[in-house]
């Protein structure tokens, strides 16, 4: 058994410096479309190109809704004028303007994870939070199998009809105060699966959502940011500059 101890020490420290310092390694995020100038003539083709309607027209500008992005890359790889794309990961936002979660959430939190029809990627990225690279225990985040011990409900997936009842039961079983974090484009908007006869348009159709983390799937750092937003240790993303001005 001693070999495992030696192996463990030999592997060294892999853990990211985030949230103390930004993570700069390659391949930690798929990025999201952001603002910047875009020629007015091409705007309509850009809007119709996006399968999940990330871009929409509003008076003299195009609005970008990163919550809807499913990383199909049609707007940068299959187009003459690519939009601006940014390799950020601090994506957690607070839904509906509430900005204080209060003292019960400031320290260690226990998280109950529910898969409500997820494709496996978001769940796998949540699982990565436990690997040595992210090691969320160091920040006081713990996964708990039972809703009775949970402060935060983390939901992935668009919420299928068969899971609606189970999801509701898990939420009801949690003690108050409690918060809901929706992770991934499907949990936010239904993604490619909504709206259909077996799927809701995201978690907000079923439960009151407090924090949203966009991405398809959001990388582990983005999920970490979303949880840090719950504890008040990071400020939520405001998507500054997410409006593209026509030129």
């Amino acid at each position: 058994m001693s070999q495992w101890v030696i192996n463990g020490i030999r592997a060294g420290i892999k853990t990211t410096a985030y949230p103390g310092k930004p993570e700069t390694a390659a391949g930690v995020t798929p990025g999201l479309p952001v603002g910047g100038d875009y020629p007015a003539n091409d705007v309509n083709s850009l809007i119709s190109l996006c399968p999940t309607r990330v871009f929409s027209n509003s008076d003299s500008q195009i609005l970008v809704d990163p919550r809807r992005c499913i990383h199909c890359y049609r707007c940068i790889r299959d187009i003459e004028r690519p939009v601006n794309w940014e390799q950020t990961y601090e994506w957690g936002t607070i839904r509906d303007g509430q900005h204080e979660f209060g003292q019960p959430f400031e320290r260690s939190i226990h998280i109950c994870v529910v898969d409500a029809g997820d494709c496996g990627a978001c769940l796998n990225e949540v699982k990565q939070l436990n690997n040595p690279y992210y090691n969320m225990h160091r920040l006081g985040f713990f996964i708990t199998p039972t809703p009775r011990h949970a402060d935060v409900l983390l939901v992935v997936g668009p919420v299928t009809d068969h899971m609606k009842f189970a999801l509701r039961k898990v939420y009801d079983a949690m003690p108050t105060p409690k918060r809901v974090v929706a992770v991934g484009a499907c949990a936010l908007t239904g993604g490619v699966f909504a709206e259909s006869f077996v799927c809701a348009r995201g978690v907000a159709d079923v439960l009151p959502v407090d924090v949203e983390v966009p991405g398809n799937p959001p990388p582990p750092l983005a999920i970490l940011h979303g949880l840090l937003v719950v504890t008040g240790r990071k400020t939520p993303a405001t998507w500054a500059g997410s409006k593209t001005i026509k030129t």
Binding site: W4, N7, G8, A11, K14, A25, A26, G27, V28, T29, P30, G31, I70, H71, C72, Y73, R74, R77, A121, E125, Q128, N130, N131, P132, Y133, Y134, N216, P217, P219
Partner: peptide, 27 residues
Amino acid sequence: ANAHAGICEEELLRISGEITGHRYLFG
């Protein structure tokens, strides 16, 4: 062993992300 295998998986996810832009090879 769990940690070692987790390191391998995360490194492969990063390799995928670095070369293709997406950790799960979408798009």
